[in-house]
Amino acid sequence: MILVIAEHSNGSLKKSALELLSAAKGLSDKLGGDVVAAVLGNDVSAVATELAKYTAKVIAVEDAALADVRAEPYTSVVTTLAKNLDAKAVLVSASKSGLSYSARVAMRLDCPLLEDVTSLDVEGTQVIATRFSYLARVTETIKALALPVVISIKPNIFPVVEASASGTVEDKAAGLAATDERVKVGEKAAAKTGRVALDEADIIVTGGRGVGSSEGFAKLVEPLADVLSAGVGATRAVVDAGWRPYSEQVGQTGKTVAPGVYIALGVSGAVQHLSGMNRSKLIVAINKDADAPIFKVADYGIVGDVNDVVPALKEAVSSL
């Protein structure tokens, strides 16, 4: 059986949960066994019911200690579920928290970890995955030499499953130990901007130093993102300058994104930035320097001043 850990936030399922289900379906077709999806949290009955529209078997694990995604309680619950259900594969989203606890789960199960994967296949009883390495310059294919295997799935790559099932929800106790709660969460600063989250966005508009200032973001980047219902990204130069929050940084030390369309405004295209966005399906660049490296990875580009081009582009897009 294939165990899926479905992520949710503020009472709704994340898109990654539906991507994990399609990845799990692919694995169960080849490895055999059914798919069981689990939701962990403090108050998850609504999310569990929602999830049951997409898959036949849902397990809801409710415990106050699971309200925040902390690595140790999550490791404990996920490992117990995997053992009790005799999972062949455990699928987790490669979000920040998912990357963090999935490594602990693999260690506790003493099994292979396939991290941040972009495709999955099965040969006999061995799972094969592709993933990026070397700052996303290389695609590597790796094989897990044993089962079970813990797999974290890169967001926004796998297709989502459509609602079809009317599944059952079963409640299970978390059964946590005192040591699972050694790490205490204090204050939280949400990076909520009211916009679509970067790793779920279909379109991302990113501003670089060429946008000029935080006012430049308000004047150029935000309005274009608004008409496209896009997420907003930033380069490190912009974050370092304090124009935008770090949560919007795309690149080696920020987020890795692969949206349908990535629009880079006044971004030079440094390797560390490219590693976070070069897997986007379509890349658009606007830069006044025709030799900027960003044009090498661009599908469409305009050599021009963002102050002239972007307002005109916004108008043209609005009147489509």
Partner: peptide
């Protein structure tokens, strides 16, 4: 616990259609 089978350089070919000239025209 894992075995590396292959490593390939990412070679997604891009259209590289770059427009120059009047900003408003290019934007349109």
């Amino acid at each position: 616990k894992t075995q590396l089978l292959r490593q390939e350089i990412q070679t997604k070919s891009r259209l590289n259609k770059v427009l120059t000239g009047d900003a408003a025209e290019a934007a349109k």
